[in-house]
Every structure is written in C-alpha cells, then in structure tokens.
Design a protein around this nucleic acid. Structure first.
Length: 430
RNA sequence: GCGAGCGUAGCCAAGUGGUUAAGGCAGUGGAUUGUGGUUCCACCACUCGCGGGUUCGAGUCCCGUCGUUCGCCCCA
C-alpha cells in the first residue's frame, strides 16, 4: 500500500540474524590471520570487461546474470558477481607480486547476480573468500582447503562433505572435452534439453546434470581423470596424500566441474546435506591461468569462496545461538531513581560494563520482564523510597540470588563486580 | 527464464460463497500487586499482498500482477 519494500532478491539482515554474521566474521578473522592471510577490500563495481575476460564470456554468470549498466560517463560497469576477479585485478594493478613470496589474501562482502532467489540464494549475496597467489605447490591447495574446513568446523558445523576433482591443464581439459562430446553425441536425443544445449556450448557441465536419464548415461562416460597428463596426475595425487596427512576426509568426484572458466587442476566443493538444492557451502580450486589472462605476470593461484547466507542457515540450525554480551539491565521506579539510573548506567559503562537502561517508562513489573528477556547477567534495581536512595539492589538473573549494596560500593569496586559477572557468565554458558 | 505450492494484524493462526473477519503470543492504556515477572478490564484487520472479473453476495471462485517457498537452471 505505497510502502516501499526491499527489491526482489535483496533482504534486510535484522539484529537477531546479525549475531550469526558477526560470529562468522570474527571466527574467520581469527583463523585467517593465524594462517597469515591478509584482508583486501576491493570495489563493489568494476569495468564490465574484467569479468568478461576473467570469468569467461561463455559462462552463465557473465552471459545472463550480471548487473551491468552504463554510468553517467557512458562506461560499462558491472556489480561484481564474485570476488576473485577484483582481487586479481588489484593484485596486478598494485604489483603485489613484486613483494615476492606468496600473497595470501581474503575478502568478504556483497556480490550480485541476477538469479531466481530462494533460500540460501539472493541477488545481493555475501561471500567470504581467500586467494593464494604465487604458489604452484600442492601444499598451497591443501592449506587453503584446510583453512576452509577448519573455519567451518570451528563454527560448529558437522556432516560436511568435501568433494575433490582435478580439471587438469587447459590442454588436458580440451582433450577430455572432445572425448566427452564424442561419447555423448550418439545419445544426444536421450539427454535432457538443457544438456543437449550444453553439448556444444559447455559439455563438462552435463556431468552434474540432475536429470536421471542424463545421469545414467553420464555414468558410463569417460572420466576426466583418465585424461590427465603426468604432471596433472602427480599433482592430484600429492594433494590427496597431503589431505590424508592432515586427516581431512574427502571423496574424489570426477564429475565435479566448476561454473567459472578460470579453474584448472584442483577443484573442490564442501557440501552440507541440510541445505536442499543449495548444498554447496564452499567452492574453489586452482586458477593458474587467470592472472596472466588478466594482463599480469604468470602467477599460479588457488582460492575458494564460502556462501555466507548458506552458512548462516546452517548456523541457525545449530542449537547454540550467539549469546548476548550484556552485563546489566537497569530498571528504576520513580523520578529520582530514573535520573540516578541514567547516571549509574553511564558510570558503569565507563568502568567497562555493558549496560542497558530501561527507557520504556513502563510499569515496574514490565521492566523486570524486559530485564529477563534482555539476556543480561544481572538486573540492577533502583528504588525511589527514602531508604533506597543510596542503595542499588542487584538481582542476578541466572541464579535468582539478590543483594542490596550501596551505589558507592558498586562503583568503587568494579573488579569484584567483574569477577562476579565472570562467574555468572560461566554459569549461564552451561 | 520454466514448472508447482503459498500470501489473513509485528508473529503463529481459524476460516473452503452468505449478515458485524475466531483464538493465541507480543504490544498499548488502566486497575490490582509495596517490589520477579500475578490477576482483571479495555484497546490493537471498515479488512484478508495488490488490481481487475464472476456473483444478489468473495478472504473463500477466475484472470492478471507483486512477493515468497520448492524443483529445474545456475552457483557459493
């Protein structure tokens, strides 16, 4: 009725949900910085050409999902549909390779694709990703994978599957592609319509068609693993061996392909069985050719990206919701006490406590109700009666225990309060 | 872009052609409670996403549209 709503495929993340996003971000920061990854922040829009060249013009992402428009200077501009192209552009533009060694970068932020929205898929969506530039060592692939599994496990996720494949070199892949087309062509009329279409355009994608008849045919198709050259094969084996050394479980899935053109050699996906159609939480792989393709020096690279709204969905299914960090909830009755409560709140905050002051002006009983709901560890009650003027009652919401102490004492000994709060926080955590 | 389901208050919902649209939670106001969330009363959808149609009469049927969910597609 005239009220403006968020655009289709976009949505508001309200405070209750933001808790999960912050949990992810802070956990990621910790884990990534321990592994010497550095954050990079690149623009949300770039020249359209960057994505056309980087992701591949034949891909669906570039072909029909980009938010592309002309700016007021008639430049063709595109809202980034993924993070790798921008990070690589920045790497080249600022000659980060000149710093020598390996650059480990991570990023997070909104991405944009014009898709049909659904649970775990938005038009403005968020990814957190890493890019490791300058190492062809299989340990780089495995380290990156290990960081991803470590992050997901630390967040408490279980029942994740790691699928692994090798796409080989571009030459390996071309040979396989020819063989696959040769194999599938006689069955063309038995394939689902999408796959028939892809036979000429992007035959590898037929491998992960969900159509049952197509799947049956594909079962018998040649495997890309038989087309890997000696170098590709030994890399793939090395990666598997190193994963085993780390105790990371995986399955080789020769039908795992990537939607973006820039991948080569290792490709992987981490999937959850609890997300229905949008099962892939994390996807990535090696892209040795991308940097040079975008005009930079020949630089081997590997990376992955996590879809954050899917990760949030999984986190929300876990029982443990992120806790409120509120220490005190302040309630009062009467004019004088209200003013005192304001002053006390300020002083406690300056002493390092998290304090919410009840501003509702509601009846006292309702204030207490709100105190309970606030998640605070303790409720401070300021009364208005003469005898109560200098006294604050502390109600420990966790244990039910209650005590009255003078305001002066409350502020003169913040250490002991801090200690009590720590005890109650531990109690509340159980 | 295609196929199917759904759309009643902030939330959960009853209602399946017939006069004034149940109920619960939350919210607001008041009474009670001299202090831990009680109890009681009142208020809280001229309207059923929006627009049109059928009908004497529509939340209920039809069409369109928007939104949403699931699948296809795509992808993280």
């Amino acid at each position: 009725m005239g009220a403006i709503q968020a655009l289709r495929g976009t949505r508001d993340i309200l405070p209750d949900e933001v808790k999960y996003w912050q949990q992810i971000e802070s956990t990621a920061r910790t884990i990534l910085s321990r592994a010497a990854y550095q954050e990079i922040r690149t623009p949300i829009f770039e020249q359209t050409e960057l994505f056309e060249r980087g992701i591949g013009e034949a891909t669906d992402v570039v072909g029909k999902e980009m938010y592309t428009f002309k700016d007021r200077g008639e430049r063709s501009v595109t809202l980034r549909p993924e993070g790798t192209a921008g990070a690589v552009r920045s790497f080249i533009e600022h000659s980060l390779h000149a710093q020598g060694g390996v650059q480990r970068l991570w990023y997070t932020g909104p991405m944009f694709r014009y898709e049909r929205p659904g649970a775990g898929r938005q038009r403005q969506f968020y990814q957190l990703g890493v890019e490791v530039l300058g190492s062809a060592d299989p340990r780089a692939d495995v380290e990156a994978i290990a960081i991803a599994t470590n992050l997901l496990q630390t967040l408490g996720l279980k029942n994740l599957n790691l699928d692994l494949n090798s796409l080989g070199t571009p030459e390996d892949r071309q040979q396989y592609r020819d063989a696959l087309v040769a194999f599938l062509t006689p069955y063309k009329s038995d394939l689902d319509l999408d796959s028939q279409d892809r036979l000429s355009r992007n035959p590898l994608r037929i491998l992960d068609s969900k159509d049952q008849r197509t799947q049956a045919i594909v079962q018998e198709a040649p495997s890309i693993l038989d087309f890997l050259g000696a170098d590709s094969r030994s890399r793939f084996e090395k990666v598997q061996q190193l994963l085993s050394e780390l105790g990371i479980a995986y399955q080789v899935n020769p039908r795992l392909v990537r939607g973006l053109d820039y991948y080569s050699h290792i490709a992987f996906e981490i999937q959850s069985d609890q997300l229905g159609n949008q099962a892939t939480v994390c996807g990535g792989g090696r892209y040795d050719g991308l940097v040079s393709q975008l005009g930079g020096p020949n630089t081997p690279a590997v990376g992955w990206a996590i879809g954050l709204e899917r990760l949030v969905l999984l986190l929300q299914q876990l029982s443990a919701a992120p806790q409120s960090m509120l220490d005190f909830y302040l309630v009062s009755r009467g004019d004088r006490a209200e003013a005192q409560a304001l002053v006390l709140a300020q002083k406690l905050r300056q002493s390092g406590f998290a304090v919410e002051l009840d501003l509702s002006g509601s009846a006292f009983g309702k204030q207490l109700k709100r105190a309970d709901r606030s998640g605070a560890l303790a409720c401070l009650i300021l009364g208005d009666a003469e005898a109560e003027n200098q006294t604050v009652q502390i109600k420990w919401l966790v244990s039910g225990e209650q005590q009255a102490i003078a305001q002066a004492d409350l502020l003169s000994n913040p250490d002991s309060l801090q200690q009590r709060l720590a005890e109650f926080r531990a109690q509340a955590a159980q």
